[in-house]
C-alpha cells in the first residue's frame, strides 16, 4: 500500500511543554483517517506541522511524499485544507471563491471553467453561482468548502472539524461526500468531536496528552476497550488525561 503520510517521532515543544510528544503513524492512500483527541491533547499542533505551517522540534514526517521540514511549500501545493471556522470568503460569490482558490493553487487556466461547471452541477449550485457565499445555508457552504478544498485535485485533504454545528441531515450528506471523494483515491485526514463520525473512518487515532494513546479501526478499538461505541472508547482513554483543564 502506498503511504501518503509517514510520521516518525514527531515532536513539538513550546519551552518545556511538549504539545506533541514523539508521535508516529502512517496513513495509506485512499484512507479516511480520523484524528481524535480531547481539547488540548495536541491535535491542532500536530495538524499544523503536517500542513507545513509549523516546524517540528524533532522527529520527521513526509506528507504526499514531501518532507514537512524542508519542503513545506510543496506540501501546501499538494494538500487541501478545510476547517469549520474558516473556509470561504463570505463577501465573494460562489464563482469568485472557486476562481480565487483555483488561482491560489495554480490550477491550469483552461481547466478552471470545466472543473467549475462540474462542481456546480454536482452540488446543484448552478443557479447560485453569482450569489454571495454569506447568503447560502450553512450546509451548502460546508459542501462548497469541501469541493473548493479538493478543487486542485490534492492527494490528501485535511478537514478540521468540518461538521461542527451542522444539522444532522447535512452532516450525513457531508460524510457521503467524503466517501465519494475517497472512491476517487483522495486521502482524508479528519478531526471531529462527533463520536458517531469516528465510526465512518477507516482508522482512528486518539491523542491524549500529546501522545497517540490508541490507533486502529473503530471495530478493533471497540473490541480492545470492551466498549459499545466510540464514545465509550474515547471516554476511557481521555478521562485520565492530565491536561484536563484544557
Amino acid at each position: 500500500m502506498e503511504k501518503v503520510i509517514v510520521v516518525e517521532n514527531l515532536t513539538k515543544a513550546f519551552g518545556r511543554f511538549k504539545a506533541v510528544d514523539q508521535i508516529s503513524f502512517e496513513v495509506e492512500k485512499g484512507e479516511i483517517f480520523g484524528f481524535l483527541g480531547a481539547n488540548g491533547a495536541g491535535k491542532t499542533t500536530a495538524m499544523r506541522m503536517l500542513c507545513g505551517l509549523s516546524i517540528p522540534t524533532s522527529g520527521k514526517a513526509l506528507v504526499a511524499g514531501y518532507d514537512i521540514r524542508t519542503q513545506p511549500e510543496m506540501i501546501k501545493k499538494n494538500i487541501g485544507y478545510m476547517s469549520q471556522k474558516f473556509a470561504l470568503y463570505e463577501d465573494l460569490t460562489v464563482a469568485e471563491n472557486i476562481r480565487f482558490y483555483a488561482g491560489i493553487y495554480q490550477v491550469p487556466e483552461k481547466e478552471i471553467a470545466p472543473r467549475t461547471q462540474k462542481l456546480l452541477e454536482r452540488l446543484g449550485l448552478e443557479h447560485e453561482k453569482d450569489s454571495l457565499v454569506k447568503s447560502l445555508p450553512l450546509g451548502w457552504k460546508q459542501k462548497l468548502a469541501f469541493s473548493v478544498a479538493v478543487f486542485h485535485h490534492p492527494g490528501i485533504v485535511f478537514l478540521d472539524e468540518p461538521t461542527g454545528g451542522v444539522d444532522p441531515v447535512t452532516r450525513r450528506q457531508f460524510w457521503e461526500m467524503i466517501y465519494e471523494a475517497t472512491d476517487s483515491g483522495i486521502t482524508v485526514f479528519v478531526t471531529t468531536h462527533y463520536m458517531d463520525e469516528a465510526e465512518y473512518c477507516d482508522r482512528v487515532s486518539i491523542m491524549v496528552d500529546g501522545k497517540i494513546a490508541a490507533l486502529d479501526t473503530p471495530a478493533n478499538l471497540k473490541k480492545e476497550f470492551d466498549a459499545n461505541n466510540m464514545d465509550e472508547v474515547f471516554y476511557r482513554l481521555a478521562r485520565n488525561a492530565s491536561r484536563k483543564a484544557d
Binding site: A38, N39, E161, H193, F234, A238
Partner: peptide
C-alpha cells in the same frame, strides 16, 4: 459546549 471534546462536555 460547542467545539468541546466529549469528556469535557460530560
Amino acid at each position: 459546549t460547542t467545539g468541546v471534546d466529549p469528556v469535557s462536555r460530560k
